[in-house]
Design a binder for these strands. Structure first.
Length: 407
RNA sequence: CGGGAAGUAGCUUAGCUUGGUAGAGCACCUCGUUCGGGACGAGGAGGUCGCAGGUUCAAAUCCUGUCUUCCCGACCA
């Protein structure tokens, strides 16, 4: 990909609206642009990373036997009346009317829709279990959007719903997805703590959240430094210094970014919306549901927050928008283009073909943070390139370079 | 929603106290010199000073209202 075609509007100075590191950097590196409070445009570079996160999620969930579908963002009030949440949800629900005055909302979550989608079909024990997920834009009319992608009014989320014949099977899915979530975040370069939480607006029996510990996090976490025990402070009367319930030592307190959550819902929606199946004896039972979310746009922000320096992004190999950033500093377009074409056969390559001075290219490359940088400079005509990986620079002959990249 | 702050060119901002019709840096266009870590010089383009009303001979500046954005808090799958 030629940089002149990609639209990467980098900024020397961050807009004054941004305060936290990740927000400033995402604006400066040309990943996002604010469109309204808590509403962002994902620019090409940011979108590429989002797609990489999504690909990891799809791989892990598909491996569990989950299937992807896509539900509408625009949802009729009728469904929310069935569950009772039209009245329960409060002003966070984005409500609107069509030209005939029929009421709708922009979905903050999709329990109602998914239940309506499956209830006519999942009427026999033979069709259970089932696990369906989507990646979709969600809407919440937040009182106070915050910190760029951290808390938006429109954000991208993966939501998964499982349908089970009994509590044991639901519990099995719950544990299986919990493990998959840990793998997903690990592959994204994030270390997460799993903490017990409130079941909140969705309702249900038990819930856990996946937290990335960070000083810009909005949740307060109590955790045991010597075990895996952790709990969201809003779900407990425990305090920092108290003995952990697993007796592993005194609890510590820290801030966390909630990047994922999992809920055992039980039968709240199957009861109110009539999702039931017949067992072998012909008896009716409500379907046991669970739901599982990953804030994809928030995960992007958490990755930036955790990995970036004050001066630039730093992408984990699994998420990087490009494998190589090629910076030609000479006028020999023919030779550099040939080099680029060859490398691009095997890798995702960003070629800085802009007619900019070397300093500008270096600064922008540092901002964008592609892990491997190839500099085609003064000595390129003599058969040398410079390879910079994680700030470590070495000079190679072109032949050595091709050998090293196996291309 | 309570408290605080701020809206002047794409970004950062000066000017506002003491009213006289807008200035800089970066970015952009032209020319020249530069040419490996955000170059320099000269010239140029770009602004309903968030919006509306009021005071005044005159408003970016004073007054009122309103919208927007950010921060703290409360709230929150």
């Amino acid at each position: 990909m030629k940089q002149s075609h990609l639209y990467v509007p980098t900024l020397k100075e961050a807009p004054k609206d941004a305060e936290v590191k990740s927000h400033k950097l995402m604006l400066r590196a040309g990943l996002i642009k604010q469109t309204a409070a808590g509403i962002y445009t994902y620019l090409p570079l940011g979108l590429k990373v989002l797609k990489n996160i999504e690909a990891i999620i799809r791989e892990e969930l598909d491996a569990l036997g989950c299937s992807e579908l896509l539900m509408p963002a625009l949802q009729p009030k009728d469904l929310w009346d069935e569950s009772g949440r039209w009245d329960d949800y409060g002003p966070e629900l984005m409500r609107l009317k069509d030209r005939k005055d029929r009421e709708f909302c922009l979905g903050p979550t999709h329990e109602e829709v998914i239940t309506a989608v499956v209830r006519d079909v999942l009427t026999s024990y033979k069709k259970l279990p089932l696990a369906l997920y989507q990646i979709q834009t969600k809407y919440r009319d937040e009182m106070r959007p915050r910190f760029g992608l951290m808390r938006g009014r429109e954000f991208i989320m993966k939501d998964l719903y499982t349908f089970s014949k009994d509590v044991d099977d639901m519990n099995h899915w719950y544990e299986t997805v919990k493990e998959a979530y840990s793998r997903i975040f690990e592959r994204c370069g994030l270390s997460t703590k799993i903490v017990a939480s409130n079941t909140g607006e969705i309702g249900g029996i038990e819930a856990h959240e996946f937290m990335v510990m960070s000083e810009v996090g909005e949740d307060t976490i109590l955790y045991s430094p010597s075990s895996t025990y952790g709990i969201n402070a809003e779900a407990t009367t425990l305090q920092a210094g108290d003995m952990a319930p697993d007796a592993s030592g005194p609890l510590k307190s820290g801030k966390g970014i909630e990047v994922g959550n999992i809920f055992k819902i039980g039968t709240k929606y199957s009861d109110t919306m009539g999702a039931a199946y017949q067992d072998q004896e012909g008896h009716m039972h409500p379907i046991q549901m669970a739901s599982y979310g990953i804030g994809i746009s928030r995960t992007l922000m958490a990755v930036v927050e955790e990995h970036a320096t004050e001066d630039g992004l730093r992408w984990p190999a699994s998420l990087t928008p490009f494998d190589y950033h090629v910076l030609p500093l000479t006028d020999d377009a023919t030779a550099t283009d040939a080099f680029y074409q060859r490398l691009a056969k095997s890798y995702k390559v960003l070629l800085d073909d802009r007619r900019e001075r070397a300093g500008v290219k270096f600064k922008d490359a540092g901002l964008i943070g592609i892990p491997r940088r190839v500099i085609l400079g003064k000595t390129f005509k003599d058969g040398f390139v410079e390879l910079e990986v994680n700030g470590e620079k070495e000079t190679l002959t072109v032949a050595e370079f091709w050998q090293s990249v196996n291309a």
